[in-house]
Amino acid sequence: ITIHVNGVTYHFDNPEEAEKFAQKMAKTYQLKMEIHNGEFHME
């Protein structure tokens, strides 16, 4: 699972971890999250 946050790329093997991380980042930084081709993009 690949997550892009403001141009920084994070890779996770565990989908649950990826989702937790994505939600935490979105909440902490008030980010808008989109999913493209199974990759999370946040800005």
Results as ranks from 00 to 15, higher is better:
1 I>E: 01
1 I>Q: 04
1 I>L: 06
1 I>M: 06
1 I>V: 08
1 I>A: 04
1 I>C: 05
2 T>G: 02
2 T>K: 10
2 T>L: 12
2 T>E: 05
2 T>W: 13
2 T>C: 15
3 I>Y: 04
3 I>F: 06
3 I>Q: 00
3 I>P: 00
3 I>V: 14
4 H>A: 04
4 H>M: 03
4 H>N: 06
4 H>P: 01
4 H>F: 07
5 V>H: 03
5 V>E: 01
5 V>W: 11
6 N>T: 07
6 N>Q: 12
6 N>F: 15
6 N>S: 08
6 N>R: 09
7 G>Y: 06
7 G>R: 05
7 G>D: 05
7 G>E: 05
7 G>W: 10
7 G>V: 14
7 G>I: 15
7 G>N: 08
8 V>Q: 09
8 V>K: 13
8 V>M: 10
8 V>G: 06
8 V>E: 11
8 V>L: 10
8 V>Y: 11
8 V>I: 08
9 T>G: 10
9 T>H: 08
9 T>S: 11
9 T>A: 14
9 T>I: 11
9 T>P: 13
9 T>D: 05
10 Y>A: 01
10 Y>N: 01
10 Y>R: 01
10 Y>H: 07
10 Y>Q: 01
10 Y>I: 05
10 Y>P: 00
10 Y>M: 03
10 Y>T: 01
11 H>I: 07
11 H>P: 01
11 H>M: 07
11 H>K: 09
11 H>S: 08
11 H>E: 06
11 H>L: 07
11 H>V: 08
12 F>K: 00
12 F>S: 00
12 F>D: 00
12 F>M: 01
13 D>T: 11
13 D>V: 11
13 D>L: 11
13 D>E: 09
13 D>R: 06
14 N>F: 07
14 N>V: 08
14 N>H: 07
15 P>Y: 13
15 P>W: 14
15 P>H: 11
15 P>D: 06
16 E>R: 10
16 E>P: 03
16 E>F: 10
16 E>W: 10
16 E>Y: 12
16 E>G: 07
17 E>Y: 04
17 E>V: 07
17 E>L: 10
17 E>S: 10
17 E>K: 11
17 E>T: 08
18 A>M: 04
18 A>Q: 01
18 A>D: 00
18 A>E: 00
18 A>H: 01
18 A>K: 02
19 E>W: 15
19 E>F: 14
19 E>H: 13
19 E>I: 13
19 E>Y: 14
19 E>Q: 10
19 E>D: 08
20 K>N: 08
20 K>I: 10
20 K>Q: 11
20 K>F: 07
20 K>D: 11
20 K>A: 11
20 K>H: 09
20 K>T: 10
20 K>V: 08
20 K>S: 08
20 K>W: 07
20 K>E: 11
20 K>C: 13
20 K>M: 08
21 F>R: 00
21 F>Y: 02
21 F>S: 00
21 F>I: 01
21 F>E: 01
21 F>P: 00
22 A>H: 02
22 A>C: 15
22 A>Q: 03
22 A>W: 04
22 A>D: 00
22 A>L: 06
22 A>S: 02
23 Q>H: 07
23 Q>L: 09
23 Q>E: 13
23 Q>K: 08
23 Q>F: 05
24 K>E: 15
24 K>C: 15
24 K>P: 00
24 K>Y: 15
24 K>M: 13
24 K>S: 10
24 K>D: 13
25 M>L: 11
25 M>Q: 02
25 M>Y: 03
25 M>V: 06
25 M>K: 00
25 M>A: 02
26 A>I: 13
26 A>E: 13
26 A>M: 13
26 A>F: 09
26 A>H: 08
27 K>D: 15
27 K>Y: 12
28 T>H: 14
28 T>G: 04
28 T>M: 12
28 T>D: 15
28 T>L: 15
28 T>R: 12
29 Y>Q: 09
29 Y>A: 07
29 Y>K: 01
29 Y>F: 06
29 Y>N: 12
29 Y>G: 13
29 Y>T: 08
30 Q>H: 13
30 Q>S: 05
30 Q>Y: 10
30 Q>I: 03
30 Q>M: 04
31 L>S: 05
31 L>M: 07
31 L>E: 12
31 L>V: 12
31 L>P: 05
32 K>N: 12
32 K>P: 07
32 K>E: 13
32 K>A: 12
32 K>R: 03
32 K>G: 09
33 M>L: 14
33 M>A: 02
33 M>I: 14
33 M>Y: 11
34 E>C: 15
34 E>T: 13
34 E>P: 01
34 E>K: 06
34 E>G: 03
34 E>S: 09
34 E>F: 14
34 E>H: 12
34 E>A: 05
34 E>V: 15
35 I>S: 04
35 I>A: 04
35 I>H: 04
36 H>L: 11
36 H>A: 04
36 H>G: 03
36 H>D: 05
37 N>L: 07
37 N>A: 05
37 N>M: 06
37 N>F: 09
37 N>I: 09
37 N>Q: 05
37 N>K: 05
38 G>A: 03
38 G>K: 03
38 G>L: 04
38 G>Q: 02
38 G>Y: 06
38 G>V: 03
38 G>F: 06
38 G>W: 03
39 E>K: 04
39 E>F: 03
39 E>S: 06
39 E>H: 08
39 E>L: 03
39 E>T: 03
39 E>Q: 08
39 E>I: 09
39 E>W: 05
39 E>C: 14
39 E>D: 07
40 F>T: 04
40 F>E: 02
40 F>Q: 04
40 F>M: 13
40 F>I: 15
40 F>R: 02
40 F>K: 04
40 F>Y: 13
40 F>W: 15
41 H>Y: 15
41 H>D: 03
41 H>M: 05
41 H>E: 03
41 H>L: 06
41 H>V: 09
41 H>F: 14
41 H>C: 14
41 H>N: 02
42 M>F: 12
42 M>K: 03
42 M>L: 12
42 M>V: 05
42 M>C: 06
42 M>T: 03
42 M>G: 03
43 E>I: 15
43 E>T: 15
43 E>Q: 12
43 E>H: 13
43 E>W: 15
43 E>V: 15
